[in-house]
Design a protein around this nucleic acid. Structure first.
Lengths: 206, 206
DNA sequence: TGTACATCAGTGAACGCGCGTTCACTGATGTAC
DNA sequence: TGTACATCAGTGAACGCGCGTTCACTGATGTAC
């Protein structure tokens, strides 16, 4: 790739990053192409040299941000056994600081919401979500220690539901309570699933 | 109220019902005022005799559908002790049939999504969500048997997160799996919370 | 009870605005010889 | 190494369309006397 090509790739990445922050904050319909390009320091017209359409961009953003976040998760909880891994993930995710910082926060809830209403993003989301739940199951560096699939998927669903509810409730005592209550709920679920899988009475099958 | 007033109230209710089905299916931005009125058998212009703006309608829809659903829930699980109440609610909610029938389904996930991005619906959602979680806590006809608040709020968050994920995943095996896994997760959480609350030895269960 | 006038729910065309997309253009980078 | 031409990333004005909202109008219902 020559100089021009490299520059273009850098620009594309800049658009993608700006768009990610924007879409996580105001959603796909809330962000205009012109806004996104402006935030990236460019003008509207150039957009279509990088993406086929606004929906294309949305798909690329879903892929980009979910991959980034999954790798971050794997790195952060590397080597932890599954109970500790999922319980820590829940605890760190369900905080007022994370609720209030959408632009830098986890893309999962935004991506899930878009996927419900924007078919163009659905297949990207589905693929990335499967990778995400595998990351929750297997972690990294903890071979032979997979979480039950129920625990991985359930934790993800709870995180997303809780975050959407907490954001819908704004910055309020009620919102803080949602974060605390859902964390307790998740911890209880993970204990229960660990007991079901781990207990001496239940270890009949290898 | 005279004949004209009665007729107008009936019409308003018809618009509200059509709008509820429409918004639950395609979201606020996906449904035009003209669509909504058309579905109700009316024309655009008349809309503003009933609602101040499209956002006003969205707020009214959130209030209307969430109230309706809460009363339905209270009626359906009347008199059940809290464990059975929440466990049944989860089981009935997390089904492929419910996932696929958005128009007639529960408004919670749609309302939560709108509240995140449309401030005009946020206060309506917050009020109704608080009523909903109280309904989950106390049920009806089961005095002296309140659920822990964690259980009520956590179950609601899990339901919403799971339904959004399942819908984002379309009608697929992966989507069915999300429903099953999250149900198992919720049942485990409720067992855990019941054990924690239920008795000092964590054994005495009726 | 009848008549004349007032009200008002609902109509449908028109308005205005925002936004996604297109396109002729510019100036810098790359290529041929 | 220099010169002439080709390419192409990014610009910014313009286009077209959809949608929320407005408004003059209609016909049925209500009211005064």
């Amino acid at each position: 790739m020559n100089q021009r090509g490299k520059q273009k790739a850098v620009t594309r990445r800049r658009i993608l990053d700006s768009a990610a922050r924007h879409l996580k904050t105001v959603g796909l319909t809330g962000a205009s192409v012109s806004d996104v390009m402006g935030t990236a320091g460019l003008t509207v017209g150039g957009f279509y040299a990088h993406f086929g359409s606004k929906e294309d961009l949305a798909g690329a953003v879903v892929r980009h941000t979910m991959t980034e976040r999954r790798l971050m998760f794997l790195e952060r909880f590397k080597g932890l056994e599954w109970g500790a891994r999922l319980r820590s993930a829940l605890r760190e995710y369900l905080t007022p600081a994370h609720r209030d910082d959408r632009a830098n926060g986890c893309p999962l809830s935004m991506a899930a919401i878009e996927a419900v209403h924007t078919p163009a993003t659905a297949s990207a989301f589905q693929e990335e979500f499967e990778r995400f739940s595998q990351a929750f199951e297997s972690g990294q560096g903890a071979i032979g220690d997979p979480a039950p699939r129920d625990a991985a998927i359930g934790t993800l669903a709870l995180m997303i539901g809780a975050m959407i509810l907490a954001r819908a409730a704004g910055q309020s005592a009620a919102s803080d309570e949602i974060l605390e209550a859902t964390n307790a709920y998740g911890q209880a679920a993970l204990e229960g699933l660990a007991r079901a899988q781990g207990s001496p009475q239940a270890t009949a099958k290898p």
